[in-house]
Every structure is written in structure tokens, then in C-alpha cells.
Design a protein around this nucleic acid. Structure first.
Length: 372
RNA sequence: CUCGGUAGAAGCAG
């Protein structure tokens, strides 16, 4: 029993919710620690439905299990359910309040987040860092810096969040300067720097940071792979993929995109078939490959085969038709989309313009709910 | 008293 609990805990920490669940189900006697650790394993690894089942089947809820469930809902964008769980906590502690704060912040509810923040009885470095990265993600890097400077205390995570605020907005000199000033760096810090150089189009700098890292994991490997992929260094990307100690959904999908970007549609398709598993992102990547290569028939059949559609899938399908001058089909898709974004409207303008229907294009343009 | 739950890093359309 004790041993099994430890095993569940370990599987949860190293990202294998599946194995944790296996052990869980094989156990005939479970204590509250068993339930908690299984829930955390599911929550941490994004298995919302499993987390939900465990949570509902638990004999007793405590603050910790509610906090984990709350976070699982929040990470999947289910803010109302997160709030319900929060409200069900009899005496929320600081961690629970922080989780609710993060739930608002990560889902773009800046007003609710700041109201929640103001009503909290106390704050710790986690609360402040949550606000810092929320503000940074809204694009307010200067405001984020002010928070960083005014925080009562800072730790490695706060420093990394601030560094990443610079790095993700292309302010590489500031990011690098913070990176150099940091006395402590962990895997996340190093990887954030690699990813920042990748986005900024400097695969050489990314590689240099990567080589200096004391250790690597899947995330750091894929950050470097992405640096090569983004910059069109196709051969480096392929070689790196071969050299990686392990592959996962992210690296397989990144490789698929390498082929797709270099117009090797057949190889992209082959990679897709070879992948041991597929998720929404990899399906979307395959669809985008067909769409960008102007292959309408394959785009449509890929779309039809997908287990789920999200706004990105719809967007790819629509632009496949739009860019190849099929205004009627585009219109049909546009109207059957569950949600339309400004880019859906732009696609329709493109569809009509491509087909030479300037009047229709103008009409769509005028009808757009928002323009920038 | 210790441990567990909350904040920072990688892949998809426009």
C-alpha cells in the first residue's frame, strides 16, 4: 500500500498519469493519500476527464484535492467549474486562492483576477508571480517590470517569468542580461532562453545556450528542434530529431512541420502515419500541411477524419478553400463554423478577392465586426 | 515538525 502510493506519486511527477492510474486501479485498499496523489497525477498532466472522475469518486475532499481539481479545470479553460470548486472550499488557504487567481489570469479575465487579488487576505511570492506573468502575457512588459521591482520577494520562478516576458517579446538583450545576472538557473530557465532565441530567429544562439545546459528534458530538446524548424534549417532539424533520446507528441509534430514547411508533403504524411499517437495539435498540423500546399481534397478528407475540431482546424480548412479561389465552398464553411474570429472574416475577403469578386470582398470587409 | 495541492519553459491555422 505504502509502496503503491509512492509509485503513484512518482508517476505523477514524471508525467505519466496513465501509469499512475493503472496502479490506482490495481489497488484493493486505498487511503486518502492514494486518492490525492492519483488526482494530482491526472491534474498535472492535463487529463481533465480522469481528474474529474477521481475527484467525484473520492470519499472526501480536502483543500489540496480541491485546489488540484480547480487548477485542472483552469488549465482547460473551464473557468466556471473552477470557480464552483473554489466556492465549495470551506476555508480556502493561500494556495487555493493563488490557484483561483491563476485561473482568472490564465483565461484572460484580467479584471476578475485583479479583484480577486485585492480581496485576498495575504499574498506570497506565488501570488505576485502569477500577477506578473498575467500582466506580461497581456503584452504589458513595462507594467510587469514594475511589479517585479515592487514585489516584496522574488525567487527563481519570478526571475524566469520576468526574463521570459522580455524573451517572448523579442527583447533579447534584456532577457539575456537577466539570464546572466541570475545566480540560480533551473531547467525551465535554460529552456525559456533557448525558446526565446528560437522565436527570435537565432538558432545558433539557441544551440549555444542549449549546449551549456547542465541537463535536458523533452521540453528543452523540442525547444531546440523548434529553433531549427522555425529558421528553415531542415537538415539540422532532421538530424536533431534522430539524435534525441526520446520522442513525444510535440517532437513528432514539430518534425511533421519541418517537412511541411519545406514542401515535402509526402514525408509529412509519412511522419503523421508513423507517429505512435496523435492529438488535436498534430491533426491540425497535418491539415495545415495540406492546406498550405493547396491540396483541397486532402484538406477536406483530413478534416473529416479528425476526431475533434477546434477553431484552428476550422481556420485551416477555410483558408484551404479561400486561398485556392473557391468562394462558394468558403462561404459554406464560414457559415457552418461554430465560432468566427477576425481571421475567418479575412479569409472570406481573400476567398472573394482570389476569385475576382471584388464587390463581394468589399461587402465582407464592410460587414466585419472588428477591423485592425 | 516534515511531505503532498497553486505561479515560470517546447509542437498547429490566420
Amino acid at each position: 500500500l505504502f509502496l503503491h502510493n509512492k509509485l503513484i506519486e512518482m508517476y505523477g511527477k514524471c508525467g505519466s498519469a496513465h501509469h499512475a492510474l493503472e496502479i490506482f486501479h490495481s489497488m484493493s485498499h486505498k487511503n486518502s493519500f492514494t486518492w490525492d496523489m492519483t488526482l494530482f497525477a491526472c491534474s498535472r498532466n492535463g487529463h481533465l476527464d480522469d481528474a474529474q472522475r477521481i475527484f467525484q469518486a473520492m470519499p472526501r475532499h480536502n483543500v489540496a484535492s480541491c485546489t488540484a481539481m480547480l487548477a485542472a479545470y483552469a488549465h482547460n479553460g473551464h473557468i466556471l467549474e473552477a470557480k464552483d470548486v473554489f466556492d465549495s472550499i470551506q476555508q480556502p488557504d493561500l494556495a487555493a486562492c493563488n490557484a483561483m487567481l491563476a485561473a482568472y489570469a490564465q483565461n484572460g479575465h484580467a479584471e476578475l483576477a485583479s479583484a480577486h487579488f485585492r480581496h485576498m487576505a495575504q499574498w506570497d511570492v506565488v501570488s505576485w508571480t502569477t500577477v506578473l506573468s498575467a500582466v506580461a502575457q497581456e503584452g504589458h512588459v513595462i507594467a510587469a517590470r514594475e511589479i517585479f521591482d515592487d514585489m516584496p520577494c522574488r525567487n527563481l520562478v519570478s526571475w524566469t517569468a520576468m526574463m521570459n516576458a522580455y524573451g517572448s517579446t523579442g527583447q533579447m538583450e534584456r532577457a539575456k542580461s537577466m539570464f546572466d545576472d541570475m545566480a540560480l538557473r533551473d531547467l525551465v530557465t535554460w529552456t525559456a532562453m533557448v525558446a526565446a532565441y528560437a522565436r527570435d530567429g537565432h538558432p545558433d544562439a539557441a544551440k549555444q545556450i542549449f549546449s551549456q545546459m547542465p541537463e535536458w528534458n523533452m521540453v528543452s530538446w523540442s525547444a531546440l528542434l523548434n529553433a531549427y524548424s522555425q529558421s528553415g534549417a531542415t537538415e539540422y532539424a532532421k538530424t536533431l530529431f534522430e539524435e534525441m533520446p526520446q520522442h513525444n507528441l510535440v517532437t513528432w509534430t514539430a518534425l511533421l512541420c519541418v517537412y511541411s514547411q519545406s514542401w515535402h508533403l509526402d514525408e509529412a504524411r509519412e511522419i503523421f502515419q508513423k507517429m505512435p499517437e496523435r492529438d488535436q495539435v498534430s491533426w491540425n498540423a497535418m491539415l495545415a500541411a495540406f492546406s498550405q500546399n493547396g491540396s483541397i481534397r486532402e484538406s477536406q478528407s483530413c478534416f473529416d477524419s479528425m476526431p475533434q475540431h477546434n477553431p484552428i482546424s476550422w481556420s485551416s480548412l477555410l483558408s484551404a478553400y479561400a486561398q485556392s479561389g473557391h468562394p462558394e465552398e468558403s462561404k459554406r464553411i464560414f457559415e457552418s463554423m461554430p465560432q468566427r474570429s477576425p481571421s475567418s472574416w479575412i479569409s472570406m475577403v481573400v476567398a472573394y478577392a482570389q476569385a475576382g469578386h471584388i464587390d463581394h470582398a468589399q461587402h465582407m470587409f464592410d460587414a466585419m465586426p472588428q477591423r485592425d
